[in-house]
Each structure stands twice: as C-alpha cells, then as structure tokens.
C-alpha cells in the first residue's frame, strides 16, 4: 500500500514538471533578470541604485506613477461601488435573468485591451458615432474628450465593472435573507442593516476585489497604449516604451520602474490587509 501510494505520489510530481518548467521559464527567470537589470547601469553592467533614483525623482516618471495610481484608485473605487450595487440587484432577479446578466458580465470581461479602446474610439472618438450624434442633437454636454484623463477614466471604469461584478457576486449570496428579516424585526431599517451587517460581512470580499481592480488598472497596458500613446503619461506606457523601445531601449530603467510598480501593488495589498484586520477588530 505504502509503496503504491508513494509511486502514485511520484507520478503526480512528474506531472507537475511541465508546469514548474513553464513557471520558471516565463515567470521566475524574467523576474530575476528584471531585478538584476534594475540594479545595472545603462548598457547592462555594474551595480547602481541610479535607475531607482531616476525613476523616483525625475518628473516624467513621478508624474507617470502619480497618474497611474490616481487613475487606478478612481477606476477601482467607482468600479467596485457600481459592481456591489449591480451584483446585489442581480441576486434579486429571477434565475434566468441573473444568469443572463452574469453571461454579459463574463463577455464584457473579455472585451478589453486594444479592441475595447477601438470600440470607445468608434463611439466616443473625435469623429465617433455617439460624439457626432450628441452634437447633432444638441446634447454636447454628453460629449467628452476620450483622449483626456476623463476619457481614459471612463474606459478604465468600463473594464473594471464586469471584473468586479464577477468577483463580488458570489459573496453576495452569503447575505442571508433571515439576517435582513431579523434586523427588520429588531427595528433596523435597510440602511442600518447594510451599515451594521451587510457591508461588514462583505468587507473581506470588497477589499479583496478592490486589490484586484487596483492591480488590474495599474498594469493595464494595451488599452492605455491604444488610446493615449503620447498625451497622457502612465507608468505601464513608460515601461513599455523603454523595454520595447523603438529608438532608445532603456531596459535597466524600465526594469526599475517595473519593480517600482510591483512594489506599489505590494504596498497596496499590505495596506488593504492591515485595514481589513483593523476593521475586523473594531467590530
């Protein structure tokens, strides 16, 4: 028995090898190389902290970092708010309607990157269909500049919402009907229920989803690239430019910026975790 189970164990480990190799080749190895490269001089020799210093002090890059963080925070915040309300309304639908809405969210989740950017351009670009239509109808207050910060924020929010819905939706089923009924019988109104029971119960899921959304936006490259190559300064665009560099590839600075991006995500996750723990203690 023991012999057989160890050999089974070995076979299972064997099956894991392709995955581990893949992980090493495409995740671990590049990451290690990136870390090394981020401490090198331009051209790839020596040891220096200069790339980090440049990344954290040069206005071009600090603006990129600031823009990326703000855009990610805003899109994650709006996205999660809309998603919680939307997903909650799904739970009150009939099973058929609910499944339909989830399918739509699922499809929307896959509609991202360059195709999404083109979609927005066709509708809301300078000569976009809706832009022209709104102008014709005299509804120019509905027109916005897709290539500005606001325009980019709309696109980001658009792709955050379905992701957030899919992530938050299952946890809404944890809210039991009997809790609402008990709370009502004990004298609480709807607002008090959500404030004292609903949201606290959902908090871990909301916080977790928020982290994912933040990372999702921080790392979004294709959408931003297609929309705002030159006129809006974002961290992934800077990194992309340096690594894929058309004229002057600066892999070392790009690596340092990528590590900075990674550290921002790690810090965000850490703060998130801390706040969650505090919130739980406070209850």
């Amino acid at each position: 028995m023991a012999g057989r189970s160890t050999s089974q164990h070995k076979i299972r480990l064997l099956l894991l090898i392709p995955f581990l190799l893949w992980l090493f080749a495409f995740l671990l190895l590049p990451a290690i190389m990136m870390v090394i490269s981020s401490f090198q001089n331009e051209g790839g020799q020596g040891f220096t902290l200069g790339q980090y210093v440049k990344g954290l002090t040069h206005p071009l890059y600090t603006t990129a970092i600031k823009n990326s963080v703000i855009l990610s925070l805003v899109s994650a915040l709006v996205g999660i708010t809309v998603a919680v309300i939307g997903a909650y309304s799904f739970t009150t639908f009939s099973a058929k309607m609910r499944d339909r809405m989830l399918n739509i969210s699922n499809i929307m989740t896959n509609f991202a990157g360059v195709p999404l950017a083109f979609g927005f351009m066709i509708l809301f670009g300078i000569n976009g269909m809706l832009t022209l239509l709104f102008k014709k109808l005299g509804l120019s207050f509905l027109v916005f500049d897709l290539y500005s910060w606001t325009g980019l924020a709309w696109v980001y929010i658009y792709f955050q919402i379905p992701v957030a819905i899919l992530l938050i939706y299952p946890s809404l089923y944890a809210i039991k009907q009997e809790w609402k009924e008990s709370a009502a019988l004990l004298g609480a109104n709807t607002w008090q229920f959500w404030q004292r029971i609903g949201v606290p119960v959902l908090l871990p899921a909301i916080a977790g989803t928020f982290s994912v959304l933040f990372a999702n936006a921080m790392g979004a490259y294709a959408t931003a690239y297609a929309l705002v190559t030159q006129n809006f300064n974002l961290l992934p665009i800077q990194i992309g430019g340096m690594v894929a560099g058309d004229v002057f590839p600066r892999v070392e600075l790009g690596s340092a910026l990528a590590i900075i991006l990674f550290l921002i995500l790690a810090i965000a996750l850490f703060i998130n975790e801390k706040m969650l723990r505090l919130a739980r203690k406070g209850q």
Binding site: K176, E178, W179, E181, S182, A183, A184, L185, L186, G187, A188, N189, R196, I197, P200, V201, Q283
Partner: peptide, 21 residues
C-alpha cells in the same frame, strides 16, 4: 404595519445570528 413597528420577536430554524457580531 411594517415588521419593525409590530414589536414581535421571531426566531428562525437557521438561528440567523449576525455573523460579524
């Protein structure tokens, strides 16, 4: 009357305690 105005107490099979309290 709405439930909160009735001042009746109710206990469910599933206990229905608030898990965060």
């Amino acid at each position: 009357l709405p439930p909160k105005k009735r001042n009746v107490g109710m206990v469910f099979q599933s206990y229905a305690l608030f898990p965060n309290m």
